[in-house]
Simulated scan of single mutants.
Amino acid sequence: MSVMEKLPGLREITGNIPEEFHEAVNEKKKCRLHNRVFESDHYRKIRILYYDGGPNTQVFNSLLYPRYCHDLPVLGIDFLAFGKKKHLTVMDFQPLHEGGSPHAFDFEPSLRSIKSRYPELGGRMSTKFYDETQFFSPEMLFARFEDPSIVSDKLLPAFKEYLASHIGMVKGDRPNPEVEGKMRERQREYDIYSAERDPATGMFAGMFGKEWADNFVYDHLFELSRQ
């Protein structure tokens, strides 16, 4: 939030989504979900979600979508902790073009420089849920680890650098109305791909009910009913 508050024109728009999606609680299973949404002059949507399942499960998930006039990747973030030892980290500038076509800015060299300083976060993603050749870059931060010190010593600084890099890239890009149609289409394709594969849907269904989970994922997380 301290970084986001510096974004030009930052506005919270959580009130624009159904109240049932602001927060969900299961007292019996001792878990809760908290969700906030923002927009700014450069980002059409910044979604921040935290799932608190007690000591067994902690999840931070966020997506930052540039406005359609920016031919740039989405910033995707997933940090998960299961118990006190199992951690999973995914963070990437997620390219939207097919076939490796470049965006308006070649972001990979700057990410490669950051990633090289954190070899603990340079793993490979499995193909169980996602295909890393679609909507993922070669410079994705990915790791499974058990040492909790990696969170503060490696993950936190890498997260800050990736976030600052994405914000700097978007703020430095000149809006181009000619790309709006294409970027609207590709962001929707990204949402469809993500919604169909998101493993969190099953977890939400188990905690808050299948109907709520489906509506939350398809109508809010990825807004497919409104696009």
Rank of each mutant, 00 (worst) to 15 (best):
K30E: 13
C31R: 00
C31H: 00
C31Y: 00
R32K: 15
L33G: 01
H34E: 15
R36G: 10
R36H: 11
V37S: 07
E39Y: 05
S40F: 03
D41N: 07
H42A: 14
R44F: 09
R44L: 13
I46H: 02
R47I: 13
I48V: 15
L49M: 12
L49Q: 09
L49Y: 07
Y50F: 09
D52A: 06
G54C: 05
P55Q: 05
P55I: 06
N56V: 12
Q58A: 14
Q58V: 12
Q58D: 14
Q58H: 07
V59E: 10
N61F: 09
S62I: 09
L63P: 08
L64S: 09
P66K: 02
R67E: 14
R67Q: 14
H70F: 12
H70I: 02
D71C: 02
D71Y: 01
L72Y: 01
P73K: 01
P73G: 03
V74H: 00
L75Q: 07
L75Y: 08
L75G: 06
L75S: 04
G76K: 00
I77G: 05
I77E: 07
F79Q: 09
L80V: 13
G83L: 05
G83P: 06
G83A: 06
K86L: 12
H87L: 09
T89Y: 13
T89M: 15
V90C: 14
V90F: 13
V90S: 12
Q94K: 06
P95H: 01
P95C: 03
P95Q: 01
E98P: 09
G99W: 01
G100L: 04
G100E: 02
P102T: 01
P102A: 06
H103I: 01
A104M: 04
D106V: 06
D106G: 06
F107L: 04
F107K: 01
E108G: 01
P109N: 03
P109E: 03
P109L: 03
S110Y: 08
L111K: 03
R112M: 04
R112P: 00
S113N: 11
S113I: 11
S113V: 14
S116V: 08
Y118K: 02
Y118Q: 05
E120M: 15
L121C: 03
L121T: 02
G122M: 11
R124H: 14
M125N: 04
M125D: 06
M125E: 10
M125A: 10
T127P: 13
T127Y: 12
T127F: 12
K128W: 08
